[in-house]
């Protein structure tokens, strides 16, 4: 049985009449890297703020299993730092909160995030990549069990992205830190996450494990026909339910890669022209776009 570190129950946030987060219930497994996927304004940041105690929930609740709020490290939106202080002093300031102003620990975190060579340079003069790393370093103060990272690779160059990915992998593998991460760069997220939650318009559309995602993404059939509606109806009649219409106009059929011959025969027999039928795998981005499309009732 899975051991969870965070469970939310119908967590909601409203600003006036506008619902930003709508009854989101997620279960985050201990030791996992949970990728939160959603477009701008979907409610990811607000959801994360509530988890990190930075915003109050309008309704619903969340439960931290076996950890306290002081064991959550966060990097929400942009890193919060004192621009006149060095990286070490920024870390030291937060370490004082925990009463663990241990120079060795500060140096260890600086080394881990690749800032050990910046010495006394004020954080205000850091590049974006260095600031993101400082933000992660700050989140690591106090030996957190859960890291909540909101778009930590935003604005980074490819090298910076790879470095942050490596840091997060190491933290997860070596220190067993659970990570809740959101990113727009879905290709990058798919290299990190072990579990996924898909958010759209404040609601959780789907929550799946990496294995399920892999299975969903590889087991699909792309079908190009002259009459999509008729084809969909026919395929529904033989028990194929995971049908979505892609942006290109093709149909995507989930979980029926072993039935391509049967599908072709059925469509041809019913006078539908089949231009192309192919087994395919899709990436996370396409999977997400298909899901959003599905929501629109395509």
């Amino acid at each position: 049985m899975d051991e969870y570190i965070l469970r939310t129950r119908e967590l909601s946030k409203r600003y006036g009449k506008h619902t930003v987060v709508d009854k989101i219930s997620v279960n985050i497994r201990k030791g996992s890297i949970y990728g939160l996927v959603g477009r701008n304004g979907a409610g990811k940041t607000t959801f994360m703020k509530m988890i990190c105690n930075l915003a109050n929930a309008t309704s619903g609740s969340f439960e931290l299993v076996g950890i306290g709020p002081d064991q959550i490290g966060n990097l929400i939106e942009t890193p919060g730092f004192y621009d006149k202080m060095s990286a070490a002093d920024n870390l030291r300031a937060k370490a004082r909160l925990y009463g663990r102003d241990d120079p060795a620990q500060i140096q260890e975190i600086l080394r881990l995030v690749g800032l050990s060579n910046v010495k006394k340079k004020p954080a205000g003069k850091f590049s974006l990549g260095m600031l993101q790393r400082l933000g992660i370093g700050l989140a690591l103060i106090g030996k957190p069990q859960l890291l909540v990272l909101d778009e930590p690779i935003n604005g980074l160059d490819p090298t910076g992205v790879a470095e942050i990915r490596e840091i997060l992998h190491r933290l997860n593998r070596e220190q067993g830190i659970t990570i809740l991460i959101s990113s727009h760069i879905l290709g990058e997220l798919s290299k990190l996450a072990t579990d996924y939650g898909f958010i759209e318009k404040g609601s959780l559309l789907r929550e799946i494990t990496g294995e399920q995602l892999l299975s969903d993404c590889t087991e699909s059939v792309r079908l190009s026909v002259n009459d999509r509606d008729a084809a969909s109806a026919l395929l529904g009649g033989i028990g194929i339910t995971g049908i979505t219409c892609m942006e290109s106009g093709d149909l995507q059929l989930m979980g029926c890669t072993d039935r391509t011959a049967e599908i072709t025969e059925l469509l041809v027999q019913n006078g539908i022209k089949v231009y192309e039928i192919a087994k395919q795998g899709i990436d996370l981005e396409q999977y997400y776009l298909n899901m959003i499309g599905g929501q629109k009732g395509v």
Partner: peptide, 13 residues
């Protein structure tokens, strides 16, 4: 203003 409050406030019981 500096955003440092995000590092502090959330950790408080």
């Amino acid at each position: 203003k500096k955003g440092y409050i995000k590092n502090v406030s959330g950790t408080l019981k």
